[in-house]
Structure formats: C-alpha cells, structure tokens
Amino acid sequence: MTKDKQNLFGLNQQALTELFATLGEKPYRVKQLMQWIYKYHEFDFDKMLNLSKKLRQQLKDTTCIELPKVAKQDHALDGVIKWVIDTGADNFIETVYIPSDDRGTLCISSQVGCSLACTFCSTGMQGFNRNLSTAEIIGQVMLANHYLKDKDKRISNVVFMGMGEPLLNEKAVYPACDLLLDDLAFGLSRRKVTISTSGVVPALLRMAERVPVSLAVSLHAPDDTLRNELVPINQKYPIQELLSACKVYLNAGTQERHILFEYVMLNGVNDSVAQAKKLVTLLKGMSAKVNLIPFNPFPKTQYITSKKVTIASFQDVLFDNGIRTTTRRTRGEEVDAACGQLAGKIIDKTKRIKVTI
C-alpha cells in the first residue's frame, strides 16, 4: 500500500461516511465513491468527475485504491484459479476461485498463516505471522473480480475458508463482510457469504449478532478426545460448548439460519461407521448440514485420504438418520488449491507448540 495512505478497500459504508465528514463533505459522496470503486472498477480519482476537484485532491493526498500484489497465478485443468499474494516482509497468502455450472466461489484468506495448528491442514503447519487488514481481505475479492470481469465469469459466493481463522481477526473480517453484503459494493446475499471457524466460541457468539452471514464449523471429529488431537482449540472450547454457541447462532436474528459442519475424512482416524453414529447423536435435531471433505495431502503429512467406499458408508449413516450430507468434490489439487492445502509462505512468529487463545 502507498505509504501513509489509507486504502479505501478497508472502509465499509459507515467508515467512509465518517471519512467524508472529516473532509466536510455530505454523506451522498459515499454512494458516488462506492459506485466508482465497486461498480465501475475505477481507481483513478482524477476520472471521478462527479466529485469536486478539491475533493479529488484531498482523496489523492490521504487515501489510495490499491489491489494486492500478485506474486504468482496458477490455473488448474478444472478451471480453478489460485493467486499467491505478496503481503510484504517475505510473507504470502493464497486466494482461490472455484467455478462450477451454477456458481463461482471465491475462497479468501483472513490471516497470514494460522495459529490453531490443526494437524490435517497445511496452513496450520506453516505457523502464524499476522492478521490481514480489511483492505487486504477485500483486495482479494477485487483482484479476482478485476481478473474475471472480461472473461464471462463471476463471483457468486465468497467463503472465508482460505488461510487463517476468521474469528481471530474480527476487527477486519466483520467490516469486510459489511462490504460483501452492501448493495453499493458487492451486493451478495447473506447466504452467499460464509465464515468458517474452528470453534472460537466467544467470537462465534459475537458473530451471531454482528454479521448475518452463513456459518461453517470445522468439526472433524465426533468426540473431544479425537478433536483435541485434530483441532487443538477444542482443548479450550470443547464440542458441547461449541454446539451451544452454534444454537445461539441458529436462533439469532429474524431470518432462518443453518450451519454447515465440515468433516475432513482421514483414513482410519475419524471415518468409521461407529464414529458416524456418534456424529449423528451430536447433531440430531440441529438445522445443519454435514460436508464430508476427502483429505487433500500435503508434504510431510501423517494422514491419508479415506477410501471412497468408507466415505460412502459414513455418508449413508448420516443420511439414513435424517442429516443432510454431501461429499465435497476435490478441486484444484494439482496446483495445491484444494481444501487444506493452502500454505503460501509464512514467517512464523508464534514459535508455539500448543495453541494459547
């Protein structure tokens, strides 16, 4: 980002209103500016001719509109695109676009690395450097939009399922959600924006009231003993405490809500019929769907992917007990863009063995 200038991608509508107030401008200027940025993809203040010359100069002096710096762009045979983004200080994050017949999903990162150290996740094995700013989060969406706009492709869904734990970066993630939902920005419906969490319970409770977006929970085990091993944050917020927070989320707001529980399938670890039955007991009666995710390998991992027949048997148990269940199709694996494979390049600042949150 231009030194000492505020990137306007980091300001939601309320923050822009406050900015214009400090410049002595009326609130209607917010709509004008947002149209230039998000509708017309115009980043040159001098071309925003419905803004006064004085205002354009003030904006140039104090703010900027800058896309992230792309270090590398990879294309998979199935249409998946992965951007490796340079965040400075020799740190890199990754953003992935996943096209399908009826949608285009953008998987964005919220942190440089991750401190939660989930043992089946490549990002977690890289360590943690810092939180991303709102501008860096929204910049990923704008970057993808900018690239796709002339290629007859669109972004219909945005998921915070890239690098990092979104609910450990609330300060930046919630304003980013505001922009994703704002009709003057991206105009996505609340069902088309999803925050995925490993179970940061206090933040999940705040999220239930703060942003009306969809929720995905990285569960991955049907009992505390195994989840403590796979998802170490479970040692602080065990399953029953997490599920209690999920019920608060489901009952918050006036519109009906649902939860997607993510469950990575690890051969001989969490994929038995008995464990499927335990999962049924846990989730029975909740307005929820389970997404079974075949494990995507990465260097030095201790796990292998469950067999297809094992995944099918696991899914049958859930389905036969009335739990909506799907198995995720692996996409972008040959460019390391599949679920759990995002690693970027991280200078770990935590030097941690156990997660402390």
Results as ranks from 00 to 15, higher is better:
Met286Leu: 15
Ser313Asp: 14
Ala203Asn: 11
Tyr40Gln: 14
Glu42Lys: 07
Phe128Met: 03
His75Asn: 12
Ala135Asn: 04
Thr194Lys: 06
Leu116Gly: 00
His146Glu: 15
Thr63Ser: 07
Ile304Thr: 14
Ser100Thr: 09
Gly10Leu: 02
Leu226Arg: 13
Met125Asp: 10
Pro222Gly: 11
Lys82Thr: 03
Gly164Met: 07
Glu42Ser: 09
Thr123Ser: 12
Val231Pro: 04
Val70Gln: 07
Phe186Ala: 03
Val309Ala: 14
Lys5Gln: 11
Gln35Val: 01
Leu292Pro: 05
Gln302Met: 12
Thr87Ile: 15
Arg331Cys: 09
Phe295Ala: 01
Gly187Leu: 05
Thr2Pro: 00
Ile138Asn: 02
Asp102Arg: 08
Lys5His: 08
Val317Thr: 07
Phe92Asp: 02
Ala216Val: 08
Ser272Ala: 07
Pro99Val: 06
Ala76Pro: 09
Pro166Glu: 11
Asn267Thr: 06
Gln6Tyr: 04
Ile259Glu: 11
Ile311Trp: 10
Lys236Glu: 13
His146Pro: 00
Leu282Tyr: 12
Cys177Tyr: 04
Ala172Leu: 04
Thr2Ile: 13
Gln6Cys: 04
Lys192Ile: 03
Phe43Asp: 11
Ile93Asp: 00
Lys54Glu: 14
Ser218Glu: 08
Lys60His: 01
Val269Trp: 12
Phe261Gln: 09
Leu59Thr: 03
Asn12Leu: 01
Val158Ile: 15
Pro299Ile: 05
Pro175Trp: 04
Lys149Val: 11
Ala172Met: 03
Ala76Thr: 03
Thr63Asn: 05
Gly10Met: 02
His258Ser: 14
Gln32Leu: 15
Ile323Pro: 08
Val70Asn: 07
Ala274Tyr: 07
Asp316Cys: 07
Cys107Trp: 05
Gln14Met: 04
Phe9Tyr: 07
Val269Arg: 12
Asp74Val: 01
Gly113Lys: 02
Asp74Met: 10
Leu342Ser: 03
Asp61Val: 03
Pro27Glu: 13
Leu51Arg: 05
